[in-house]
Design a protein around this nucleic acid. Structure first.
Length: 454
RNA sequence: GGCGCGGUAGCAAAGCGGUCAUGCAGUGGAUUGCAAAUCCAUCUAGGCCGGUUCGACUCCGGCCCGCGCCUCCA
């Protein structure tokens, strides 16, 4: 039985989808005006794992991850760059696809863009107005009236009267309550706009997710995910809008992934302390980065540093080393085998990939003790996590060693072999040290000498 | 100020009321011409103070410290 930590309940709950055998999930994706940072990567990988595990559990999964392609920051950045919004967003969508794809994240079933769902948003705002939950303010914005929605604050555990709107940021004067949020922004000069019954304007931030989620998955669906920082106000607002408009429960299970931190502080765009996936991948193998993310539980905070990535690299190397000699090709896990049983129990416990990964190392240990037949199982279980699917040799030899080509390395290995045959160990060791200096490590085994990159 | 999360060995990171997490690093062995890889063994734990219990890292209470949300943010 899969159990999921539901933010709404603040507890783990048995997972029972609304429709038997089928799971519909929505995750808040990227606002596309800059490169993905590792925090985005974590979110993408975390929900990729959720989806993979649901699928491995036999569910038919429909996964929607939106793209926000219109908002204040996009408008500003495009203006700074003297390019159109479309040019800017298309470029960063492409970069996102490349970066996230490198991390082994599978494409969602749908990747709706906010600008494609304006009619659906307007329809929803209309219903909110009809239900007395939205009003057109003096400045022309259409706002959601937070106090008219009784459940407001349930997800984030906040009470309206405890919130201090305006303490840190100026509140729009036209709002009836400082906590009211904008559904539709009236148009300003030099900004993109769409016609609407409330005048030309553009969407507020949260309405897009309500509109896209409900359009693609229905007015009620199973799972909604996103980063912890979206819990309030974004997800709170989504619930208010969707339930206010539709009059039925919006989402059954809310999932929130923890942050990636740097120097014990949240990594974020606004703090400027972020590392882009792109930059990290210049130094580290993408699978190492995925492994780094998979090794921790998705809800806990984790700290990014090169040292931790190096640690992940060594650990992943151990797994691939155990896989040498495994038959190539894809096999399904044998779920009756003890390691797989524990792996499944771990994943069923709120997607505990940390514990599941530990099981992979136990398999590696068994393989090292001679149970070669478990290599297929290791690879199969790794595959559930989107890991270990490469040819081990290719992983272990990935990278480059300056001027030394693979052929050069092979030639030196031959030369060393000849020296060893003549018991010229001085020369043999010299060659090995030469290669080692170039980052190539030799391993003499019963079947000859193999090499890998450090 | 309100709400929430967390403090586990040198580092990273899990589960668990009573034998083992796991990875990296360290130490000692096996193996190797020497290494590497692998295997075996092994050292480093549970912020502090109380309580419950035959027994607590695990449950309860208090305290200290850190982080997050309350503003756009994964």
């Amino acid at each position: 039985m899969l159990r999921i930590y539901n933010t709404l309940a603040r507890d783990k709950q048995d997972f029972v989808p609304m429709r038997p055998g089928e799971v519909r999930m929505y995750v808040c994706g990227m606002t596309v005006y800059d490169f993905c940072h590792i925090g985005h990567g974590r979110m993408m990988v975390a929900f990729d794992l959720v989806r993979r595990w649901l699928r491995a559990s036999g569910y038919r999964v429909t996964y929607v991850r939106n793209i926000t392609d219109i908002d204040d920051k996009i408008i500003r950045r495009a203006a700074e760059n003297r390019e159109t919004i479309a040019e800017l967003t298309e470029r960063y969508i492409r970069f996102m696809d490349e970066d996230v794809g490198a991390l082994g994240v599978e494409k969602p079933d749908h990747e709706p863009r906010a600008t494609q769902y304006v009619p659906q948003m307007l329809q929803m705002i209309g219903r909110l107005e009809a239900n007395g939950l939205a009003y057109r303010a003096a400045d022309g914005d259409v706002n959601f009236s937070v106090r008219k929605f009784p459940g407001y604050g349930e997800l984030s555990g906040k009470l309206l009267d405890d919130l201090r709107a305006g303490e840190r940021v100026e509140v729009g004067a036209a709002k009836r309550d400082p906590l009211d949020f904008v559904l539709w922004k009236h148009s300003k000069p030099d900004e993109p706009k769409w016609p609407s019954p409330w005048g030309d304007g553009r969407p507020g931030w949260a309405i897009e997710c309500s509109a896209m989620g409900c359009s693609l998955l229905g007015e009620s669906f199973d799972i909604h995910g996103g980063g912890q920082d979206l819990q309030f106000p974004h997800h709170e607002n989504e619930i208010a809008q969707s339930e206010g408009a539709n009059g039925k429960p919006f989402v059954k299970y809310w999932l929130h992934n923890g942050f990636v931190q740097v120097d014990d502080t949240k990594m974020s765009k606004s703090l400027g302390n972020f590392f882009t996936i792109r930059d990290i991948l210049k130094v580290f193998d993408p699978e190492v980065m995925r492994f780094f993310l998979v090794r921790a539980h998705y809800r806990s905070a984790m700290t990014y540093s090169d040292a931790h990535l190096n640690d992940a690299k060594t650990a992943l190397t151990r797994l691939y080393t155990a896989l040498r000699g495994a038959a190539p090709g894809k096999t399904a896990p044998d779920w009756s085998e003890p390691h797989a049983v524990r792996f499944k129990a771990a994943m069923d416990d709120d997607f505990n990939t940390a514990e599941a990964v530990a099981e992979l190392f136990k398999l590696a240990n068994e393989i090292g003790r001679g149970k070669m037949e478990l290599a297929a199982q290791l690879k199969a279980l790794g595959g559930i996590l989107g890991l270990l699917q490469r040819d081990p040799q290719a992983f272990l030899q990935a990278g480059s060693s300056g001027a030394l080509s693979d052929k050069d390395i092979q030639d030196r290995i031959e030369a060393r072999l000849a020296a060893r045959k003549q018991k010229n160990y001085l020369e043999a060791d010299r060659i090995r040290e030469e290669l080692e200096a170039a980052g190539v490590i030799l391993e003499d085994g019963p079947k000859g000498t193999s090499w890998r990159r450090a």
